[in-house]
């Protein structure tokens, strides 16, 4: 397989960014306490790889648990909301209201209820990420072509038949689009909760490193977060391509 220029550019840009960063730190003699150079960050990553890996794993599993809850709940609620216009109209404002609460504000409450630990992180990840799933599933269902619905209803199809044969497969692209957003949000939720009150996780590690003035380690934590975030996004991007490939290819049929 030939490697196209397009495949190299992301790597090239990342490397260039690090080189610029390193150069800037050297050139302007920036104190490593303000902004550590990439070389120092990588050194910290090598030195603390044990704790970094352990805490990354905690963040990963709280994110995943919160996200899975959000997927199950989000699809369920999305189907209910998309089922009929009346429910859609009734529930939508409630959900908008709920979604507009900054979830950071909820974390202290969760900590009061469940104590410091992994449960608040899981719940924050869940609360922050279910909304886009609900909205997208509901939208996918609500925008089923009326003619197609007529065709099936004239055949004697029940609402359930229409949902199973048309509505739910049709939400696929909407759902996977939402999953990519939701996994990133869940990650944000978990880390935010960990920085406020937890005894493990990358957020917790960074807060601790910060209070010990270990800036390279704080940045090493950031780097670990970035890597983890990209990996999770990539997993869902690949899944999306696999599962709903028709949605990508059908855009090319516009000419037909």
């Amino acid at each position: 397989m030939k490697i196209a220029a397009e495949d190299i550019t992301p790597v090239a840009f990342t490397v260039a960014l690090f080189v610029l960063w390193e150069a800037a730190c050297l050139l302007f003699r920036i104190d490593s306490f303000i902004l550590p150079a990439p070389s120092q960050i990588f050194a910290a990553m090598v030195q603390y790889w044990g704790p970094l890996l352990r805490n990354s794993f905690v963040t990963l599993w709280t994110t995943a648990a919160g996200f899975l809850l959000a997927v199950a709940f989000g699809i369920g609620l999305g189907v209910v909301v998309g089922w009929s216009r009346a429910i859609y109209r009734g529930l939508y404002p409630v959900m908008i209201g709920f979604n507009s609460i900054p979830k950071v504000a909820v974390v202290p409450i969760l900590i009061m209820w469940f104590g410091i630990g992994e449960i608040p992180a899981i719940l924050t990840a869940f609360l922050i990420s279910f909304f886009p799933i609900v909205v997208n599933v509901a939208t996918g269902l609500a925008t089923t072509e009326p003619e197609l619905e007529d065709v099936l209803r004239a055949l004697g199809a029940s609402k359930l038949d229409i949902m199973r044969k048309v509505g739910i497969p049709r939400t696929g692209p909407y759902l996977f689009g939402a999953l990519k957003v939701a996994i990133t949000l869940a990650f944000v939720g978990a880390v935010v909760s960990e920085t406020i009150g937890a005894n493990a996780g990358l957020g917790h590690l960074m807060v601790q490193a910060g209070s010990n003035f270990q800036m390279p380690l704080v940045f090493a934590g950031l780097m670990a977060l970035a890597i983890e975030g990209i990996l999770m996004y990539a997993v869902f991007a690949v899944m999306e391509k696999r599962m709903v490939s028709w949605a990508f290819r059908s855009s090319m049929s516009a000419a037909g």
Binding site: E145, E147, L148, D150, V151, L152, A154, L155, G156, A157, D161, K165, V166, P169, R170, G172, V244, W246, A247, S250
Partner: peptide, 25 residues
Amino acid sequence: GMAFQAANLLPWRSVLDNVMLPLEI
């Protein structure tokens, strides 16, 4: 049986599976 101006075939099904859709209902 009904047909409209827009063919309204389901993009995730092959032509054969689209044609067989009414049989499932």
